[in-house]
Design a protein around this nucleic acid. Structure first.
Length: 544
RNA sequence: GCGCCCGUAGCUCAGGUGGAUAGAGCAACAGCCUUCUAAGCUGUGGGUCGCUGGUUCGAGUCCAGCCGGGCGCGCCA
């Protein structure tokens, strides 16, 4: 519809002598009295045409030749808006298209053919996932789905590091816990990992080896701990239905010589220098605040260097778009990595970084504290146990990534109308129930899609069709802005409008032709709800 | 001190490129079930959009400066 209107508006503007590059855009007004679509083009032209907006709007309308019967009303309102109201014919025709598209309705070609790499979670195997990780896990899953629904060819990637300080720390921690399990009086080092999972790992080792590993090297404890932690992370991701295509080990960057190559290039370009026995990157000459160490005086690289190499690697794999999701606590590294890549001659426009803010978990108005290094951590598994998979996913995607998220565990747990995830799921279950009831009444619901839809005349029927028609736009806009929270808001609207329709319009038991048409509309609503839930990774239950 | 994010109704939050009387959910109050799921629907009240300036015909939205909160600012990741 927008494309059709834009064509006609452009041709009208041409005759008025408006500039070629005038933007003609339509938006859905907040207030339904302002029509179904609205444009402010007349107001934007007031200056160049040196006429009043309302006069320009009048002129545009005078030159408009909308001929297909899809527009019922074109009117000027307020300071110079042109408001367009759809005809019933348009709504009915579009509902027909929705039904014909079936389960694929909502898919668009916005990202058609684009190869996209999405990297997220990327937690190192030093422990299990904690509740706070859930935000990134669920956000990434929904974004991945959005990108696929808009035609993208996705590679889901997980980057991890199983070497270095953190893992040495893990080795020491596992070792100490193992000895403690064997009865030794020994203290966990100050910076050791205090999570209960390390104790579990130690217990597992005792069960498997008894005291036979007392003299084993730290590398043994490290690798045992790593495997156990990775298995735990995988189990948790599995519970949420999150899968990755590529697990990229930081070590491979050393094995392949990529790190060495990058160091050499930095030196050759005069972007790195030695000081105090370490190698520094001249970030201050790349527009950043200050220089940073990329190779420590011990000879080990800092995280920054492999991060740069990793992004080079991804850039070299030919993706049209590379998306990283990071928590706000990693914000400092991003600018450095991008600056370094630009200094090496890369176009970083292809890289998009999503920074999500932190999460606080609240229960009964009280803050739940958690810390990865303390034994009393609130794990993602516990959160899932507490509120269920669907609530976890819906709640983590409910707010924009840039906003701090307050996760109300009490509310998420509650099986009531207060809980937004149930509101959406209930609408779907209610529809399923209506269709079952219709079957019980001897109706063949598989035939209703063919119904004559022109009998749909009720205002709530039309309102529901309009909401359903927005679905593809909602998905493509959410995908473009990498913001799944719009989908949550939209699904709430669909559910709400369905409930209004249900309240006002008797479905089963009304006149046969109306009954069929309403069942067809109901079916369309069910599919949109189900598809929207699928994008969020939330189930759409047949009954509740 | 510096960088990024946030500040909108009692609470939690939305507010595509600047536009029409600033929205939703929850909470509060008042209604609606002999028929398809009341986990629902209808109605009411509730706001100096942190503050101050600036740009503009028009600012919650853009710019500057303050104030308040979060996260960072390591030869940790």
């Amino acid at each position: 519809m927008e494309a059709y209107l834009e064509r006609h508006f452009r041709s009208a503007l041409g005759r008025l002598g408006a500039p070629e590059d005038t933007r003609v855009e339509f938006e859905i007004p907040q207030n339904s009295e302002h029509g179904d679509l609205s444009t402010n083009v007349a107001m934007a032209l007031a200056r160049p045409l040196k006429k009043s907006p309302r006069q320009i709007a009048q002129d545009i309308i005078g030159h408009l030749e909308l001929d297909n019967g899809y527009v019922r009303l074109v009117e000027i309102a307020g300071p110079g808006f042109i408001n367009i109201t759809f005809s019933k014919t348009y709504l009915i025709d579009q509902l027909r298209v929705v039904l014909d598209e079936g389960a694929t309705f909502g898919r668009t070609a916005t990202n058609e053919g684009k190869a996209i790499n999405l990297e997220w979670v990327s937690a190192n195997p030093t422990g299990r996932l904690h509740a706070g990780h859930g935000r990134q896990v669920c956000l990434g899953q929904a974004i991945a789905n959005l990108l696929e629904w808009t035609g993208g060819k996705l590679t889901r990637e997980y980057y991890f590091n199983n070497a270095g300080n953190q893992m040495a720390n893990l080795a020491k921690s596992v070792h100490v816990r193992y000895l403690q399990e064997l009865g030794d009086e020994i203290e966990l080092p100050e910076d050791g990992y205090r999570g209960v999972e390390i104790v579990d790992i130690a217990k597992q080792m005792v069960a498997e080896f008894g005291d036979g590993k007392r003299a084993a090297p730290l590398s043994f404890f490290q690798s045992f701990g790593e495997q156990a932690n990775f298995a735990s992370i995988q189990r948790t991701l599995e519970r949420l239905g999150v899968h990755h295509d590529v697990f990229f080990n930081e070590n491979s960057l050393y094995d392949s010589g990529a790190v060495e190559t990058t160091i050499r290039e930095f030196k050759e370009r005069g972007l790195a220098y030695e000081k105090d026995g370490a190698l520094w990157l001249k970030l201050s000459e790349m527009g950043e605040k200050e220089d940073r160490v990329i190779v420590k005086s011990t000879g080990e690289p800092t995280y920054r260097l492999p991060d740069i190499c990793y992004h080079r690697n991804k850039l070299g794999r030919g993706y049209d778009q590379i998306i990283d999701i990071f928590g706000a606590d990693h914000i400092a590294t991003i600018a450095d990595v991008l600056a370094a890549l630009r200094a090496l001659g890369y176009d970083t426009e292809r890289i998009k970084v999503i920074i999500h803010q932190m999460v606080s978990f609240v229960s009964g108005g009280e803050l739940i504290m958690f810390s990865k290094r303390s034994g009393g951590a609130y794990t993602l598994d516990e959160l899932i146990d507490d509120v269920g998979v669907d609530a976890v996913k819906y709640f983590f995607n409910m707010r924009s990534a840039g906003s701090h998220l307050e996760f109300d565990v009490e509310l998420a747990k509650e099986q009531s109308e207060k809980n937004p995830v149930y509101y959406v799921q209930y609408a779907h279950a209610r529809i399923a129930s209506i269709l079952r009831f219709a079957e019980q009444q001897g109706l063949d619901t598989s035939q209703v899609e063919q119904a004559d839809l022109t009998v749909l005349d009720h205002a709530e029927e039309h309102a529901l069709i309009k909401v359903l028609l927005r679905f593809p736009t909602v998905l493509s806009r959410s995908a473009a802005s990498l913001a799944p929270h719009h989908v949550c808001e939209y699904l709430r609207e669909v559910a709400q409008q369905f409930h209004k329709f249900y309240h006002d319009c008797r479905i089963v038991g009304s006149a046969p032709e109306i009954q069929s048409a309403r069942l067809a509309l109901t079916l369309a609503a069910k599919r949109v709800l189900a598809s929207g839930c699928t994008v969020l990774g939330v189930t759409a239950p047949e009954s509740m």
